[in-house]
């Protein structure tokens, strides 16, 4: 039983990392008022380009992941231009960006022969003897570098959001762009920067899946994790720390499934795979019931293209 718990908890962080990074990336963009449904696609871009950098250019895994971040940030310019400059419907723009990224990542993988090639990827941080401590060792000292970096990244994001001028501007643009504009904050520039920064984190989430978790690139390998991250943002009410909590929760749910099978629990194989999706749905239902009468935490201008008010 203890063994079961240890392996379960030890595999949870690596499953939680993409959710946490993806959700925080989305939070950055949505706190600036841009409804962002692109995560599923941008994660794929991050995943394929990081894997490609490692496979074709023998980049060290961390550098490969940086490439993934940059690639996702670059592709997100397309989405940002659509919704910020051209004021396109943010739902449609998000969906078509996902569609575009699915095609692009599949095309790149096929053209350059990255698809289905295993590589060594990012391993755990070598803590030496610490990792062999019973119970604590595999859980606390058995993770890779990015897993340890998640909390510092979240800390930086929440400090920037809450305690800097840049964060103040970003939140103002998301809550009331008219007021921010009147105060001299450039709404389009702020939103562009928020989307790009957020997309870099989403790209890192995708790169983590290919380079650190699975250590291979396969078409559509994110398998809905981007959508779960979108749901997580609502669950977290646009707060990075609550998003971390949700990510760990979802990671734990996902981690337990193979452990149960390994422990000899007989479950219908394919129905078990529905667990993360049904769990997400359950959480969404719970949030909307529990907070039915609570004031909304949604950024005031979420999903609303900003146009300086000139009379028609």
């Amino acid at each position: 039983m203890l063994q079961f718990l240890v392996t379960w908890l030890a595999t949870t962080p690596s499953l939680a990392v993409p959710y946490a990074l993806g959700a925080v990336g989305l939070i950055l963009s949505e706190r600036a008022g841009v409804l962002n449904l692109t995560a599923e696609g941008l994660m794929l871009i991050g995943a394929v380009s990081a894997a490609g950098a490692v496979l074709s250019f023998h980049a060290p895994p961390l550098l490969g992941m940086a490439v993934g971040m940059a690639a996702a940030a670059f592709v997100s310019l397309l989405f940002a231009a659509l919704v910020i400059t051209f004021r396109a419907n943010q739902v449609i723009a998000g969906l078509v960006t996902v569609f575009f990224c699915q095609g692009l990542s599949s095309l790149l993988g096929a053209q350059f022969g990255w698809t289905s090639k295993a590589f060594s990827g990012l391993g755990p941080v070598p803590f030496g003897p610490l990792a062999t401590i019973p119970v604590l060792g595999p859980i606390v000292f058995g993770q890779d570098l990015v897993a340890y970096l998640v909390v510092p990244i979240l800390f930086v994001v929440s400090v920037v959001l809450g305690r800097t001028r840049a964060g103040l501007n970003l939140r103002a643009v998301g809550e009331n762009p008219e007021a921010a504009d009147a105060a001299g904050v450039s709404v389009p520039i702020t939103r562009f920067l928020a989307v790009i920064a957020g997309s870099a984190l989403i790209g890192l989430a995708g790169a983590y899946i290919s380079v650190a978790s699975v250590k291979i690139w396969i078409d559509d390998m994110t398998a809905g994790r981007g959508w779960i991250a979108v749901a997580l943002v609502i669950f977290a009410r646009w707060n990075p720390w609550r998003a971390l909590f949700g990510a760990v929760l979802f990671g734990a749910i996902q981690a337990i499934i193979p452990k149960l099978a390994a422990a000899g629990v007989m479950l219908p194989q394919y129905l078990v795979l529905t667990t993360p999706y049904l769990a997400t749905l359950a959480v969404m239902i719970w949030v909307s019931i529990a907070r039915r009468h609570a004031p909304g935490d949604e950024p005031g201008a979420l999903g609303r293209p900003y146009v300086r008010e000139e009379r028609v």
Binding site: A223, G224, W227, V230, T274, Y277, L278, T280, M284, I285
Partner: peptide
């Protein structure tokens, strides 16, 4: 229950 349909419909596809 005012559950966002964008997410629920997508998740139900996987299910």
């Amino acid at each position: 229950m005012n559950v966002n349909e964008i997410i629920s419909t997508l998740l139900l596809n996987y299910v």
